[in-house]
């Protein structure tokens, strides 16, 4: 199943990925990274189609997308 990884140290918690995912699989967490930004988390690999829209929206290239 396609999935994404979010580099917590690069994420600035802007949330743009959360509105990009057509299936709402990315949400903002409460956990801060070392700079104090609360980072985004990927919640459901089962539904992910690897469409990359979250990664396309991310201004910080914090998301990598994997697909077979």
């Amino acid at each position: 199943m396609p999935y994404i990884t979010i580099n917590g140290e690069r994420c600035k918690g802007c949330g743009l990925c959360t509105i990009a995912c057509p299936k709402k699989l990315v949400a903002m967490s409460e956990t801060p990274n070392s700079l104090g930004f609360t980072v985004a988390v990927f919640s459901g690999p089962e539904m992910c189609t690897g469409c990359k829209l979250c990664a396309e929206m991310c201004p910080d290239v914090a998301i990598a997308v994997f697909k077979d």
Binding site: R10, K12, G15, D60, F66, D68
Partner: peptide, 24 residues
Amino acid sequence: MRQVFARPESLKDVQTHFCPGCNH
């Protein structure tokens, strides 16, 4: 599984100073 989205080579692998949500 192969990576289908990655940082472009021409962009350095560094944190930017831009604010959260800045489209730069």
